[in-house]
Every structure is written in structure tokens, then in C-alpha cells.
Design a protein around this nucleic acid. Sequence first.
DNA 1: TCCAACTTTACAATTATGGGATAGTTTACC
DNA 2: GGTAAACTATCCCATAATTGTAAAGTTGGA
Lengths: 130, 130
Amino acid sequence: MKISEAAASSGVSAKMIRHYEEIGLLPPNVRRDNSYRDYGISEIHELRFIRRARDLGFGLSDIGKLLDLWRNKARHSFDVKALARAHAAELTRKISEMEGMRDTLEQLAKACNGDNRPDCPIINDLASKP
Amino acid sequence: MKISEAAASSGVSAKMIRHYEEIGLLPPNVRRDNSYRDYGISEIHELRFIRRARDLGFGLSDIGKLLDLWRNKARHSFDVKALARAHAAELTRKISEMEGMRDTLEQLAKACNGDNRPDCPIINDLASKP
DNA sequence: TCCAACTTTACAATTATGGGATAGTTTACC
DNA sequence: GGTAAACTATCCCATAATTGTAAAGTTGGA
């Protein structure tokens, strides 16, 4: 299977497949005589694994660890669980942070007339906070 | 006031002050004879404005627009409000996305034994989603 | 005067992805 | 068989915001 087919059936762009290979997330691909990369079913599975992990917000560093665990049949599920929980906690932290921003913004926007005059609590807040 | 003092009293690092100047967010700073940048009260206020906007998650492009509005005494508050609401909506969108990730992860983690055995619903999910 | 602490500029790294250029290869069609 | 479209390869650049580092010049106090 050529790279564009692998991309289509994994949901990872050809550009990214090459990139993941370059940074060592994927092992160097065997080339055919024409120097084209060649992909089989197992590579497609790896790419889908990466794609799903990306969709869940994992960073490439975590994905590398998850791939190692996946490949390791002697893995301990608590290692996987720890990675998942740590990432979930980080997501929760970011969510809280963003909720704080959004709530502040909504509060300020609610207090803003939104008319043709210049007076605006939003600008005032930005300008006056020490 | 030298740059490190401006940094200390605005909460924006010296590095970032120079960067904001370079990308045009701040006007070119008047230099003293020694080529050192010199800051006064009004510059500190601008820097604090930027810092507060960053704390609310605005991107530098939006911050540029907000600074223009702030400087423009003939501004219309609805322009400010529109920026704030658009950013709040974007935050909400990202929050939802991340909540989805987190909830999926927590659900999978809950179903994972987290013991010494390899079986793990998290890995299974990553490996099996098409 | 000398040294520490500062400032300057310039360049690189980070994270993950996309865009483009150029050169070589395959494939489909005539 | 030849030609053109479509593909692949590699390389460099760009994004957004921030930090780090290095080299060279400046200040200020002992």
C-alpha cells in the first residue's frame, strides 16, 4: 500500500505519516525499489492507534509511550491507566482554566452595552487590572 | 524605566516585551543614547493591558485589535463586545471538545483494572477504533 | 578601574501540522 | 512506445507564543 492509501485508510495525512517516522514515533519504513514507502495492515493499525490517541488529545510523547505499551504484551495495565488518568487530569486543569476565562468574559460582556458609545467594561477591565 | 523594571511592574517578560515590539503589537520604543529601551507609565499600562488580555486567553491578533480599540476614543463598545463574545464562544467550543476527551478517558480508565495484567480497555479502544 | 549585572541582537527550540518547490516514479491512455 | 497526469520523495518554510542561549556592548557600584 502506498502512503496516500495508508493515509486514506488511517485518517493520518501522508505528511504526518512521514513526520511520525522521522521523529521516531514509527519505525523506519521498508522502501520498495522505487524508494516509495510501503504499508501493510499492521502499519495501518499503528496509524489508526495514533490517530485515535490524537483525537483523545494525547501529545506525541504520550503516544510514543502508549505505542510501546501496546506493542509490549507483558505490559501492566496500570501503566496505561496512569497515562490516561494523568492526561485526563491535565485536560480537567485546562478546562477549568478556560472556564474561568470564559466566565469572566461573559460577565464582562453582559455588562457591556454593545452600542455606538465607547464606554465598555471589557476595555476597562483590561486596562485597569494590575 | 529600563526593560527589566518594565517587565517586573507589568508582568510581561523582557523577552516578550521585545517580541511584542518586533511583531508590531507595540510601537517601536524610543531608545536612550545607550540604545537601551526606555519605558514610562503609559507603556506600563499598555503592557498590563496585554498581560490581562493574555490571561483571558486572547491571541495576539485579537490583542492587537483590542489595543486599537482601547486607544481609539471614538470606538464603539459593540466592537469590543463582539471580540469578547467570539473569544468566549471559541473557549466554549474548546472546552466541550476537551470535556469529550476527558469523559471518554475517564470512562475507559474506570473500566481498566490497573493491575499487573496486560488486558486494558484503554489500549483496546485505541487499537480498535476505525 | 574592574566586575557583576544589565542590555542588545540574532538564532534556535518547543508542538503539531500544513504548504510549497523540485526532482524522480508510476500509471493510464493514445 | 511515448506522453501527460498523478503520485512520491526530500527539503525548507510557516504557524503561535514563549523560552533559551550566545556574543557583544553598557552601566553602576566597590
